[in-house]
Amino acid sequence: MNRVTRRGHEAPASTEGLLGMAIVVVDGVDTVLVHRSVLNRVAEIAFRLGCHDATPLVRRPTLLSGPQVPRFRRDLDQVTAFADATLRTGWQLWEIAAAPADEPVAVMDTPYGRVWVDPAYGFKLQGTDGGPRRPTAVRQLPGTARRVALSRLIAPLRGVATRARVLEIYDYDA
């Protein structure tokens, strides 16, 4: 996950072109970027399990403070256990991770076209000419796309929530 500063939400070069992201602000200072599809999957599972302190993830902007934060941590643990036990997955390529539900989600705009993540087929580059291709030509996305456990995609959020007293989550597009 990319670390950025909250002040002014200025995007460093590494976040250029990213789409559909949300920024997690911890105690007003430290932040991580998570794709909104991951937050949406977490909220869906939380709703299903009755973990109501994690469902606000889908209603951004959201602020969690006081006793909400430990309950949020506990609910994230429940969601992680469920995701592991039912083998829920998402996709990761370089530092971009997304967990689309039924429809592909856009993750990045590049000079070669827009990069999408399809729930079944993973990353694809939709250029202005021709059909979708693998995003191997995109210099900003080195490496190989992998299907990864959803719990791994939730891990950065769990990590920052562990030490948080106040959590704020905003939609963010670089």
């Binding site: 399990l49 009755g50 506990r74 429940q78 256990a81 469920f82 592991d84 036990a85 083998l87």
Partner: peptide, 12 residues
């Protein structure tokens, strides 16, 4: 395939 506990009772 899993031994994870999803504690539905604690949530309530």
């Amino acid at each position: 395939d899993s031994d994870r506990v999803v504690d539905m009772c604690a949530v309530r």
